[in-house]
Amino acid sequence: MSNWVKAMALSSALVACGAMAGSTDVDAIAGIGREATPNEIKAWDIDVRPDFQGLPPGQGSVEEGESIWLEKCAVCHGDFGDSNEIFSPLVLGNITAEDIETGRVASLTDPGVVRTTLMKVSTVSTLWDYIYRAMPWNAPKSLAPDEVYALVAYLLQLAYVVDYDFSLSDENIEDVQAIMPNRNGVTTDHGLWSVDGETDVMGSDCTSNCVVPLEVTSSIPDYAMNAHGNLKDQMRDYGPFPGIQTAPENAPVDVDVDPVTADRAVPEAALQSNGCLGCHRLDSKLVGPSFAAIAEKYAGQPDAADYLASKIRQGGSGVWGSIAMPPMPQLAPEAVDEITDWLVAR
């Protein structure tokens, strides 16, 4: 019996004691809180378990998934889910027919192979649940169940689990679970689930003349000492333990004058409520260029405000790279004006 199963069996017994031990009588708080309505529960109880409890009915094909993917997901994850720009690759094409047969992704033992999402995930419900609740990253909970079925189907096809003509539904999702490449690759046989679990590693209690390796096998090379910035500036400079100077001396001081924020108040509310900050930052590149870089590029151009306003509404790619900004026709004209005025004001 695994520790997990043991812990589970045990818990039912202990639950009874735990509940009794509460020092306040629950009757004392009987009037506090109210019953949830069925609609409220429906709105929030969106989780899907490995046994598919909670899965809404629906279906979606790989082909449909591909077009939703290109519109809503590819910008961050790449056309084939292989991008490492915004997050680690979801799939890289290193799952074999044999993995699908055994239910163990063999390349997980190969340190040279990047561990992708599809190599690790053992339960298809996990993908469904997560995409429905949290993706797209900048607009979570905006997908309909059928779109989620289609997107999961597309990801499974990229991982060679299903064919291009496949359509995923609540009816056949169990069959897909039976061929998930890493379905047998997880274990709960360990002591870390419960506070009372048993450990698998124990240190030594030796206190003198202990036989231990004393050779320094790893340290941070000199050239990397400044990779986290000048350590001198990260320690209190007057105590017993000041920091080591790791930056080259007399390095030019980085004066961080932001041309955008320096001149005018940032229209934070407009940028925030319209989701711009999911892809843009003020002074560094994210999915799209930084607003500082945009302001600089169009500085002094008479038609910049009109151009930027229409680009923000219509979206498109090619000016800053191959990644496209999605069209946002729904934006309030005042919000677009406020943002473009701010961008061109210098």
Binding site: T109, S122, G185, L192
Partner: peptide, 20 residues
């Protein structure tokens, strides 16, 4: 608790529900 926060062991198995 399935794709992340799982501990990869030398035999390629992922330990799931490792909380403590």
């Amino acid at each position: 608790e399935t794709i992340h926060y799982v501990d990869l062991m030398p035999d390629g198995q992922l330990r799931q529900y490792t909380s403590i």
